[in-house]
Amino acid sequence: MKRPILIENEELFAVLDERRMTPAMKARRPEAVLPEITNLSVGVKGKKKAATMFLYDAVSFWTGNDARSFQRKLAETDAEEIHLHINSPGGSVFEGVAIYNLLAGHEAEVIVHIDGLAASIASVIALAGDTIHIAENGMVMIHNPSVVAWGDSTVMRKQAEILDKIRDAILNTYETRTRMGREDLSAAMEAETWYSADEAITAGFAMHKTSAREETALWVPGDFEGLPAAAMMLGRREGDYREDAEVAEERGGVEEATADGADERGNLEDVAGAADFIARMKLAHGL
Rank of each mutant, 00 (worst) to 15 (best):
R3L: 15
I5P: 00
I7T: 14
E10P: 01
F13I: 05
R19Q: 13
A27R: 14
A27V: 07
R28C: 13
R28F: 11
E31D: 12
V33P: 01
E36Q: 10
S41P: 00
V42Q: 11
G43V: 07
K45H: 09
A50N: 06
Y56M: 15
D57L: 00
A58W: 03
W62N: 03
G64C: 07
N65G: 02
R68C: 01
T77A: 08
I82S: 04
I86S: 01
N87Y: 01
S88K: 01
S92M: 01
N101I: 05
L102G: 01
L102K: 02
V112T: 13
L117Y: 11
A118H: 03
S123I: 05
A128C: 02
D130R: 04
E136M: 06
N137I: 11
I142L: 08
A149F: 06
S153A: 15
V155G: 06
M156E: 12
R157L: 14
R157P: 04
K158M: 12
E161S: 12
K165F: 07
K165Q: 14
R167H: 13
D168K: 10
L171E: 09
Y174N: 03
L185I: 09
A187N: 14
A191K: 15
E192R: 15
D198L: 03
E199H: 07
A200F: 09
A203L: 05
F205R: 07
A206W: 04
A206P: 07
H208G: 00
S211G: 14
S211P: 02
A212N: 13
R213L: 13
P221R: 08
P221Q: 02
D223H: 13
M232A: 09
M233F: 10
M233C: 12
M233T: 15
G235T: 06
R237V: 10
R237E: 14
E238D: 14
E238Q: 13
E243M: 11
D244V: 12
V247K: 12
A248G: 04
E250K: 14
E256W: 13
E269G: 10
I278L: 15
M281T: 06
M281G: 00
A284Q: 09
